[in-house]
Amino acid sequence: MSVDAGSAAISARGPRIIIYGLLILFAVFYLLPLYVMLVTSLKPLSEIQSGNMLQLPQAPSFYAWEKAWGAACIGVTCEGLKGFFWNSIRMVVPAVTISTILGALNGYVLTKWKFRGHKLIFGLMLFGCFIPFQVVLVPMAQVLGRLGLASSTPGLVLVHIVYGLGFTTLFFRNFYVAFPDELVRAAMMDGAGFFRIFWRILLPASLPIIVVTVIYQFTNIWNDFLFGASFTSGDAAPMTVALNNLVSSSTGVKEYNVDMAAALIAALPTLLVYVVAGRYFVRGLMAGAVKG
């Protein structure tokens, strides 16, 4: 018996080494571009032009980062990305907050305060998730124009809230479906009303799904290019659009180190959100998925 067990352990170790080896290999492969971006952003231009992409910087400096942040030319102004970074923050914070709150309320109503036609409403909201961005561009532009929100950050916020509502509703509905109805009934008997039950009973138990929704919405809205490019112009543009303009509008020598630093700055907030809240992400997705 023990001999069998021993040899089984040894024979299990072989495949394990291969599996881990392959995993490490792929991880390195996928991290390689990030590595190249990082080292390139720290090199002076001369070093980049000399050839070896993978080489570590000989004289690392944050010159490119500083320029990308504060002095690079985007269009005709040469003030770097910082203005546009704040544009994005001003867009993403209200858009994520409002769409998450509305999604939570929708999920609450669709599961705990069912009304005639609640399935149809939910079906239509789900359907909204599958409408491609491009389809809504023209009608959306007309609506924004009529509301007087064209080419502004509030307009962009509105677009992202409307577009995100389907997803946030889906997340919260599936989470609240598994939430026991008896708790809501007990709270009702205790004398709590619609918003009290939501605020005191459901919301405190919703942390996992809030994290999922916030990560999902933050990533999507921060990284969006199409709506940003379509519904804003000039100084109101979000980070993604500015990054594109920076990379494509360089005159004379192409400053790869500045481009790389700018791209990294653009990617940092989403990276940060994942690092801070990531471990809740999978857990939350699972929590919603088990009963749904």
Partner: peptide, 19 residues
């Protein structure tokens, strides 16, 4: 409305507020 009937109820699942 249930909240205004001055009736209390003990549920099968106890329905204690988990948080």
């Amino acid at each position: 409305h249930p909240s205004r009937r001055d009736i209390a109820m003990v549920f099968q699942s106890y329905a204690l507020y988990p948080t």
